[in-house]
Amino acid sequence: MTRIHATALVDPQAELAEDVEVGPYAIIGPQVRIGARTVVGAHVVIDGRTTIGCDNKFFPSSSIGALPQDISHNGEVTALEIGDRNTIREFCTFNTGTFKEDGVTRIGSDNWIMACVHVAHDVRLGSHTILANNVMLAGHVHIGDWAVLGGATGVHQFVRVGAHAMVGFQGHVSQDVAPFMTVDGSPLATRAVNLVGLKRRDFSAERIAVIRKMQKLLFRASLPLEQACSEIQALRGQGADADIALMLDFLAHSGKRGLVR
């Protein structure tokens, strides 16, 4: 049975799976849908057109699905979508989208999101990411799968962080971060391949060797970006074609803010 604390306020129009748990003083709005085995902690507010999958855990005092912090938003009904098995710690704020994109903020599955993280409107957060305490994602930010963002990192609007990338503590991310790389410092710079992360995910020695070659071409060979991409394309056939394709696709869609190099 759904376990709803006597002090919680759950709108009768909200749709909760039968085994959802709702803690003391939580508030759940009428357009909210929550999947099986999700736990909503004390004082959590879930509002807006918010859809949440299964096995998520919301720790106390988060605000989920509030209107976007965008002065051009005029009350349009937009949405927030959250996948499965996410851990969302205390005091997080996730906003719905705007129609500057398709009106949806999307969060994937299996993410570990620590306290006081802000996910703004139209963010695309992948799966298996780690966002440490006080990470701030501005509007329209895209974060790839398995990315790790260190504590107190701020990401500028419209910036993308590639899959398997690592951003160091207190990173000021105002340009795109390439997949597989570690960036840190002030000003932010690409330092090396994220070897610790790749090894933890059982990347083979052959794949890592090719990723190292891509890193050298992009960040150490002083090549124009177009020429570096041509050289990366030529690495195909060495056992890491999927990784090469991921990198080239990321670079092909790099935004106006440029690439952290």
Rank of each mutant, 00 (worst) to 15 (best):
P24E: 12
A66D: 12
D110M: 12
T190A: 14
V260M: 07
G29S: 05
I211F: 04
S72G: 13
V123P: 07
A245I: 08
L248S: 00
T51S: 13
V161L: 12
L225N: 02
A242K: 13
V161A: 07
A79I: 01
T7Y: 03
A221P: 02
T2W: 05
R236Y: 04
V210G: 08
A178V: 15
V44A: 00
R160E: 08
G162Q: 06
L195C: 07
Q238H: 12
D202L: 14
G144E: 02
T2G: 11
H164N: 13
G150R: 05
S61R: 05
S222A: 15
V32F: 02
Y25D: 12
T38Y: 02
F169T: 14
T129Y: 05
I27T: 12
G154D: 07
V183K: 04
D145W: 05
A245S: 12
V77N: 14
V104S: 09
V177G: 08
G237M: 06
L218Q: 11
G239N: 05
G108R: 03
K57R: 14
N86W: 03
D241T: 01
V20F: 03
D202E: 15
K199H: 09
Q69Y: 03
P24M: 08
F58T: 00
G23Q: 09
A178W: 04
T153P: 01
D241R: 06
G139T: 04
G139K: 02
V135R: 02
R207N: 11
A26H: 00
D47V: 00
E18T: 13
V155Q: 03
L137R: 02
E76V: 10
A138D: 11
H5R: 04
R220K: 15
V155K: 01
D102T: 11
T7W: 01
D110I: 13
E226G: 06
G185P: 07
A165E: 10
F99H: 09
A120M: 12
R220S: 05
V155C: 06
A120Q: 11
A132M: 15
T50Y: 00
R201W: 08
